[in-house]
Write a protein that binds this DNA or RNA. Structure first.
Lengths: 106, 106
DNA sequence: CTTATAGATCAACATTCCTTGATAGGAGGT
DNA sequence: ACCTCCTATCAAGGAATGTTGATCTATAAG
């Protein structure tokens, strides 16, 4: 029992960050390695402020990290949050497996 | 490369379904076993139409299954979608690990 | 056939989220 | 100092989500 409950807020934040096509594409690009915003706006043909917004959402969720180098900002995947994600999904999985049988109701 | 890309739409749907406190609580309750809506509205002190709405979101995402028995509707976790979830998180994890080093930019 | 109960669906409203264009800040280069 | 480039932030509008109360459907019981 109590599969997802601990720190539900954080789970919501994490999952919300992942529930957007643009952000998933960003993560996908970053899986090829650290990249700067200019490169991302370039290859994704997206408005700079748009990507900046989504990168902030990802960063606030702990999914990516940023690093400044001169006037460029480099973003990369953060494996820490991804482990938290893994744990969440893990507890869900266990819950689904142990899923007890029906109880009489109402 | 290409960590999340395959069927991004589905991933978005899955993660979106998980990005809500009420829905996470529903999943948590269901991890104790199949339950009918009346029982859930009861213990969660939530309006019936509200839970119906959220259960639909979960069902559309494939996270839960429903079963009718007389006039009651029983909901339970569906382990299938949870495995898909696991795969998604897995590819993210691998991506984060292999995360290449910085490339020269702009 | 009438009535009651469980749940889904709908319409209206509130809220939250995303997009866009404009502005601001910070780092180099001249 | 100034100008330029890269990025973050803000404000305004639009789109999608969640909430609430009412209505509809299906099943069961009398």
């Amino acid at each position: 029992m109590a599969a997802v409950a601990p720190s539900t807020k954080k789970a919501v934040t994490l999952f919300h960050a992942l529930s957007d096509e643009t952000r998933l594409e960003l993560l996908d690009r970053l899986s090829n390695g650290e990249q700067c915003v200019c490169e991302l706006t370039d290859t994704m043909k997206a408005a700079q402020s748009r990507l900046s917004f989504h990168l902030k959402v990802l960063k606030d969720a702990g999914l990516v990290e940023d690093r400044r180098e001169g006037r460029w900002m480099y973003y990369s995947l953060s494996s820490q949050a991804i482990e938290e994600l893994e744990d969440l999904v893990d507890s869900l999985k266990k819950a689904a497996k142990s899923a007890g049988s029906a109880r009489r109701c109402c």
